[in-house]
């Protein structure tokens, strides 16, 4: 078990080191996300009452699409240099590859969300910072990173990576997407009478189900 954590931390350190060298994934995530936010901000009148109605939609569509583009980048090099294969002939349990990728992407996603939320709360005059949202984001990011890494590895072998990843990822994560949008809506409109607990239960169960399922299936998608 000690060895398990050690290998996991080596894998994570390696990915973060590479990201420090190239800065590709994080920059893609933040810039692309901000670009979508900017396009939306051009089309609104900066009236916070109106923005309250579709703020959640804007925020999350930018995170989702920026996330899936960054995910493609994140796996592109691994496939290009066959480094995933080299881990397969090393004594590394396959689910650790999934976990390390998910954890690293979780970190990137969280950083980019902080930046995107800060900027959009300025652009749209929204007040969105609350403990509820942070908790929701953590649950959402776990699900998104795990399912995204799973499909990221699958689609990295195809020639149309971007469209394939997006098409696979978004329908599957619909439940947690609904959860996070409902939560964000509540926070933006400062509504108290919501069923946040039911949603949180759903989000956590989604994470647990898919974490188990995908760590079990991950070995099967790697072999040729």
């Amino acid at each position: 078990m000690l060895n398990w954590f050690k290998v996991l931390s080596i894998l994570i350190k390696k990915d973060i080191k590479i990201e420090f060298q190239t800065k590709e994934t994080l920059v893609t995530l933040c810039l692309f996300g901000l670009l979508i936010i900017t396009v939306f901000s051009l089309s609104t009148e900066n009236n916070s009452l109106i923005n309250q109605n579709f703020g959640a939609g804007i925020l999350w569509s930018s995170v989702i699409f920026a996330g899936s583009i960054a995910m493609v980048k994140f796996f592109y090099h691994e496939e290009q240099n066959k480094t995933l294969q080299s881990l397969l002939v090393m004594p590394v349990p396959s689910e650790l590859i999934l976990f390390s990728k998910s954890i690293v992407f979780f970190i990137f996603l969280s950083i980019s969300e902080i930046i995107i939320f800060l900027i959009s709360s300025v652009l749209f005059n929204l007040n969105i910072f609350s403990l509820k949202l942070i908790l929701g984001c953590i649950v959402f990011n776990i699900g998104y990173s795990v399912v995204g890494s799973f499909f990221g590895v699958i689609s990295s072998k195809s020639s149309s990576k971007e469209i394939l990843l997006t098409m696979l990822l978004i329908p599957i994560i619909t439940p947690i997407l609904m959860f996070i949008i409902a939560t964000t809506n509540d926070v933006i409109r400062s509504e108290l009478n919501s069923n946040f607990q039911t949603w949180l239960g759903l989000g956590i169960s989604f994470d647990i189900i898919f974490l188990t399922l995908m760590s079990y299936l991950f070995g099967k998608i790697l072999e040729d």
Partner: peptide
């Protein structure tokens, strides 16, 4: 075991 294939299987950024 050790494996050398056609591809280098190295991280070019490092």
């Amino acid at each position: 075991m050790g494996v050398v294939l056609h591809e280098d299987m190295l991280y070019p950024q490092l």
